[in-house]
Design a protein around this nucleic acid. Structure first.
Length: 870
RNA sequence: GGAGGCAUAGCUCAGUCGGUUAGAGCGCUCGCUUCACAUGCGAGAGGUCGUAGGUUCGAGUCCUACUGUCUCUACCA
């Protein structure tokens, strides 16, 4: 028997242990069997569980449990990510607190610390994920730096290198002076900042002409190697080919003409710093300009900066401006808002710097990746995210994959100190294959963490090891993640998988939004507005967390995680618990029979019909990955139909004396509850299992039961429609009671004049739900003062004696009449429209006619009543 | 600069293929310690679906423009 109060903490953990012991999460790799597979986005080992993981896992677990119950061989593979830069930043911080610089430890020592970190925090996040009741297969737990994944990284790199898709080159990259590493374009965040425009100019050697320009980064002038104008700009044509002098470094640089310069903008002159600006770099390549770096890796000025060498970049900027002013060169300073890029890990302003790095050539990889989505091999949910994807893929630039870090997959390239050969093989070389020399050293850099994440769907399944897992579960069925990592991850998995395996990594991409606070703000540490899922689960339970994140939420839209929504969800869980208690308390010790042996009552037929259609709707919605609507459909059914009406319908029988009727009612109650629990299990796994285990005839576990299917033999449309009429009537009678303040406890007499004769069979329900002491199927005697409640099935009269206020009643009836008349007008207009009659589906026209007839009948009733009252 | 989202009840949001009287939760009003649940029950009030056009027999839903708002993306020195 269930406890009186719903206390999730008393059973959630126990049930999770039970499922794990039984091995329900661990499928066998059976090649050729219908399967369903998800490979989890691996959380960073830096972190702890946050609400976004909660959402991600709630979605995946719901789908996975549904598919498992449908009989698919279902795998959900979890893992963690080494998160190269993020983790290294954290460890460096930790070391700093101990007063240690990472270089003091050396590479080996540092990596040792990193692996310790991984053991500690990687384990912690796994334990936290388990609290969500996620049914993932922990026996297959993967890590982006485990042997399998490292092997995949190595093979992919070598293969791409040999095909010329990975190359090393001097390019402008985004440099973080604090992390002291290159970053990919995707790792830079832009934000508008207040800055300045400094206007000044360079003068020709003869001192006669000055070309004026504006810049936001004056310190880069020390690396200027040209001044550019537009070739069509008549103001400057006479200067092209002349030279000007850069102050401080006294470099003589040419004035060049290049289409890149916008004549309309500013003075139409641009100073060109090929080493520190992506566009300038391109100009430099076209004009063969020298590339002069003026900054060190830590953001200080280098030896090329002359008198400013050694200064921090911002200090240098200040000094340069001051000096320019002093020298009378500075003409104007304007405030200027511009977008400044910063490191996505440490938020330092990044510096575009020319640097020798490793890149992936994207053009040839992007092409098939675009095709796979265009031709429907991969579907985005919602579809609009495909547009975002195309937008990025079609304008993609080469991907900078080398990072000047230690924690990560080291670039598998060796250089021969003797002959300068570059060696990239699957196995570490001992000697140089070119010169036979043994003086080799490995590239110092590691790979972008997303390089290994990109291989995740197939590396974890053991693609490179010819594994059964890969054969049984690939391509994976669904990828679920937030829309914020489409570029970082989704896109890169698609082209990486197509390249390596020739197959898409997944069939469906299910995108969800960001969880925000009550006011719609992002949850963040600095705002302190985050909800800690672990604390939340301790208080409300995993089921409530999951359901609150899923119920009623449309795919791809952000979620406001507000307290009243949480309360509502908790209340629903409590409701389910209590309706379970109600059924089980009544069923305890009673003999139940299969539905086929029951004499079904009207109410039974109605709820079974409703159940049947809910099964259809929920299944269809889940198959379309519309989890939010599926959950809502289900909770509406449970609360508004099963609890509010059906349970009330059964009470007269359960508390009655007819043993057979009681047995049958209980059998139906249990049947419907059993189905509800199964339908609800993917969303609220613990609650449903706990109730299920208390059911009279339960199996081993609800999670290995079959998901309910529709049964047309349990559909009784006519009876169901009668019950809908009954419900309407009950509501109207209650309305009268409420309007006239008839105490709910007072039992009254009701006169009923049926329009639908079948309503005569509903006396017992009417009596219970309207609290009647007597139901008379006849009009009220003329001397009795009554108030009428008119429905489709009948006109009821509630005797109220002196309570009847004729003016009030007339008002009430008039209002109802008004509604009905506006409906009649609407229906008449529709039916007199020739276009509607000839073009609309016949069914629709018939419906409209039937409606009109009903409304006219109602109108007559109400009119008569109104006349009577006047 | 480019792309996309959103605009529906006081608030937060659903609304699938264009087709019942546009829904829910919260809030609000009135009533109820009814033997599963006051984390509850019953009855209500509350919407010209951002604006203007268009397509259609029929538009919250499709098209065009506009207004407001948010996000992504690129980047002008």
């Amino acid at each position: 028997m269930l406890e009186k109060t719903y206390d999730p903490s008393s059973f959630e953990h126990k049930l999770y242990e039970f499922w794990m012991e039984r091995g329900y999460f661990t499928p066998k790799a059976e090649v050729g069997k219908p399967y369903f597979s998800i490979v989890s986005p691996p959380p960073n080992i830096t972190g702890q569980l946050h609400i976004g993981h909660g959402l991600d896992n709630a979605i995946m677990d719901t789908i996975v449990r549904f598919k498992r119950m449908q009989g698919f061989n279902t795998l959900w593979l979890p893992g963690t990510d080494h998160a190269s830069i993020a983790t290294e930043v954290k460890i460096v911080e930790q070391l700093k607190k101990e007063g240690i610089d990472k270089h003091d430890l050396g590479r080996e020592g540092f990596l040792q610390r990193a692996w310790q970190w991984k053991e500690k925090y990687g384990g912690r996040i796994v334990e936290q994920l388990k609290k969500l009741a996620s049914s993932c297969d922990w026996s297959r737990l993967a890590f982006t730096m485990d042997d399998k994944c490292s092997e995949a990284v190595r093979k992919q790199f070598v293969s791409m290198y040999k095909k010329g898709l990975i190359y090393r080159g001097n390019r402008i990259i985004n440099w973080c002076p604090v992390c002291r590493t290159a970053l990919s374009d995707a790792e830079v965040e832009y934000a508008e900042q207040d800055g300045c425009f400094w206007h000044y100019g360079y003068t020709t050697p003869d001192g006669k002409t000055t070309v004026t320009f504006a810049t936001t980064r004056p310190e880069t002038m020390l690396g200027d190697t040209a001044v550019a104008v537009n070739p069509n700009d008549s103001r400057y044509t006479h200067l092209v080919g002349k030279t000007v002098i850069v102050p401080f470094v006294n470099r003589e640089i040419p004035v060049i003409a290049d289409e890149y310069v916008d004549m309309e903008f500013g003075t139409g002159v641009v100073k060109i710093t090929p080493a520190h600006d992506p566009n300038d770099f391109e100009v430099g390549v076209r004009h063969n300009l020298p590339v002069i770096r003026v900054m060190n890796d830590d953001g200080t000025m280098n030896e090329n900066a002359g008198e400013f060498a050694g200064l921090d970049r911002y200090e240098a900027r200040k000094r340069i401006v001051a000096r320019l002013k002093e020298m009378g060169i500075l003409q104007k300073v304007e405030p200027h808002k511009h977008n400044v890029g910063s490191c996505y890990r440490c938020h330092t302003t990044v510096e575009p710097i020319v640097s020798r790095q490793w890149f992936v050539k994207m053009q040839p990889l992007a092409e098939p990746a675009i095709q796979a989505v265009r031709n429907g091999e991969i579907t985005f949910h919602p579809e609009r995210f495909a547009k975002t994807y195309f937008n990025w893929m079609e304008n993609i630039k080469d991907w900078c994959i080398s990072r000047q870090l230690w924690w990560g997959h080291r670039i598998p390239v060796w250089y021969c100190d003797d002959c300068c050969a570059e060696i990239c093989e699957e196995h570490d070389p001992d000697v140089c294959p070119k010169c036979g020399g043994s003086h080799l050293h490995q590239d110092e850099d590691v790979l972008d963490t997303w390089f290994s994440s990109a291989l995740w769907p197939f590396s974890t399944l053991g693609y490179y090891r010819d594994s059964d897992d890969f054969k049984a579960f690939f391509p994976t069925s669904v990828l679920s993640c937030g829309y914020d990592i489409i570029f970082f991850w989704v896109a890169r998995m698609i082209f990486s998988s197509l390249y390596a395996t020739g197959q898409v990594p997944f069939r469906h991409v299910l995108m969800h939004g960001i969880v925000r606070d009550e006011q719609g703000r992002k949850m963040s540490k600095s705002l302190g507005n985050g909800v800690d899922p672990v604390e939340f689960i301790d208080k409300y339970g995993a089921d409530t967390l999951r359901f609150a994140l899923i119920n009623g939420v449309a795919n791809g839209s952000d979620i406001r995680f507000a307290p009243d929504k949480i309360d509502g969800t908790r209340n629903f869980m409590n409701k389910v618990w209590n309706c379970g208690r109600f059924v089980l308390m009544n069923a305890e010790g009673k003999q139940l029979v299969p539905l086929s042996e029951c004499k079904l009552s009207l109410a039974d037929k109605w709820i079974l019909t409703k159940l049947n259609s809910v099964i259809g709707e929920v299944t269809e919605l889940l198959e379309k990955y519309e989890l939010g609507m599926a959950a809502q459909t289900l909770s509406d059914f449970v609360w508004s139909e099963f609890c509010d009406w059906y349970i009330e319908f059964t009470k007269p029988v359960l508390y009655g004396t007819d043993e057979i009727a009681r047995r049958d009612a209980l059998s139906v109650l249990c049947y419907v509850l059993d189905n509800i629990l199964k339908l609800l299990h993917p969303f609220a796994p613990c609650l449903t299992e706990e109730i299920y285990q208390a059911m009279p005839s339960h199996g081993e576990s609800i999670m290995v039961e079959r998901f309910p299917e529709q049964h047309d033999e349990l559909r009784f449309d006519d009876d169901a429609s009668l019950v809908e009429e009954l419900k309407e009537l009950v509501t109207k009678v209650r309305n009268v009671r409420s309007t006239y303040n008839v105490a709910p406890s007072k039992r009254i007499r009701l006169y009923v004049v049926p329009y639908d004769e079948r309503i005569r069979s509903c006396g017992v329900y009417l009596a219970k739900l309207c609290n009647l002491e007597e139901t008379v199927f006849a009009p009220a005697p003329s001397d009795e003062k009554t108030v009428k409640a008119v429905g489709v099935a009948a006109a009821c009269e509630v005797p109220l004696g002196d309570l009847v206020d004729f003016a009030k009643e007339a008002e009430r009836v008039a209002k109802e009449l008004e509604n009905v008349e506006s409906e009649i007008a609407r229906a008449e207009a529709k039916l007199s429209n020739q276009g509607f009659l000839s073009k609309a589906p016949a069914q629709l026209v018939d419906n409209e006619r039937a409606k009109l007839a009903k409304f006219r009948e109602l109108q007559a009733q109400l009119q008569a009543r109104l006349d009577e009252l006047k």
